[in-house]
Design a protein around this nucleic acid. Structure first.
Lengths: 205, 205
DNA sequence: CAATAAATATGACATGGTGTCAATATTATA
DNA sequence: TATAATATTGACACCATGTCATATTTATTG
């Protein structure tokens, strides 16, 4: 006798496959058309399923994109997790630089998805919330790092660490979008280096 | 005999008044409903004009908001124009601080309009372009100021002034939106002071 | 192995917004 | 007054959305 929890119902399997077909088709349509212009009709046509079926699996375009964004999100969270225990200003600079570089590199490797994301953030509150969570995560993390450096006498103690963290992340984020849009001048490395230089000199005496 | 260029045609006047009525109604609807939910039907109803009339005067929602944004835009441009000829690091800090404060104050005084603007930027490319122009203006201006300070030996010369300018503006801009959304912690003054402290310490040796 | 139940898929339909355009009304000019 | 130019209008065609009664497929029961 087969174990219930290991085997998937034949019909549940059908459901999963339909959902998968839709997700794949949706991704193509999103990338071809952008978030606004993409329609459910295009997706279901490409997936070879019925119109109403899309609404069985998702509440609408937004939710479909939310799911598609999940693995990109995961990568951002990984970057945010990097540990930070510098003993010198120079060590701090290096850690910060490499984290900033990794962050900005995401814009290049995930450009097409991030482009979609940017459009969607402006349109869909639920997707905006998703991005906001990432922002919070980074800010909280950076804030913590600054507090650590301040306790160790490395960073200027009079500065409000939360405000500094926000400011630093904001610069990173805006550059991220700029790179996503392909509007930046210079390489990611150059940008990261310049940003980091001003920031570390500003924060560490 | 009346001068042609001084007198407005009676019918042209009618046109202008209709347009004006529409703009006023549109502003109300936009503020009540937000950019997305606002519809032409609501606006023409409130303005007491016919549906097609809206499309005679504007190409659509976007263009209406563009016009409504113009005076806010003007104020931003004024802030960008402040002259910058510091002779000491401290003098620079003060000028930068007051400009940053003025910039962030805009978020408070024009909150409702800026909120609309933020939504619209995500949705309408033409409005995004309008904002981008402001951003360019500021960045160009800041960039110039940094170059000036570098020439006078006030600012670290090795830094790419355009990249630094962007980074600095980006922090300002993101805080602006945060304040617009009413999500900020602390007062505008606090934020401006902290941002400016890190920035000037980072840029000026 | 029916018969019945449960889960899944479907597309026609109602709704609501957009932008257009032929017709109408108003104002200017001959 | 007749005619031309300008401005306004709302009905209409179009398109996307989300819902729902119906159909189809799979599971279970006696």
């Amino acid at each position: 006798m087969k174990e219930k929890h290991d085997v998937v119902d034949k019909r549940h399997l059908r459901s999963i496959k339909t959902k998968q077909k839709l997700l794949e088709a949706a991704k193509e349509v999103f990338l071809e058309e952008g978030f606004q212009k993409a329609t459910i009709s295009q997706m279901i046509k490409k997936a070879g399923i019925g119109y109403g079926t899309a609404y069985v699996h998702f509440e609408g375009k937004e939710e479909i994109l939310m799911v598609l964004m999940d693995d990109v999100m995961e990568k951002f969270y990984e970057i945010a997790e990097v540990s930070f225990f510098p003993k010198t200003k120079e060590e701090a600079r290096q850690i910060i630089l490499s984290q900033a570089t990794a962050f900005l590199k995401m814009a290049e490797t995930e450009r097409s998805m991030m482009r979609l994301f940017e459009q969607a953030i402006g349109i869909s509150p639920s997707i905006a919330t998703k991005w906001k969570a990432i922002r919070e995560k980074f800010i909280q993390r950076i804030s913590q790092d600054i507090a650590f450096a301040q306790k160790n006498g490395l960073a200027r103690a009079k500065l409000n660490h939360t405000l500094v963290a926000k400011g630093w992340f904001f610069t990173n984020e805006m550059y991220l979008w700029e790179i996503v849009r392909n509007e930046q001048q210079g390489t990611v490395e150059e940008i990261a280096q310049t940003m980091t230089a001003v920031y570390t000199e500003g924060l560490y005496p």
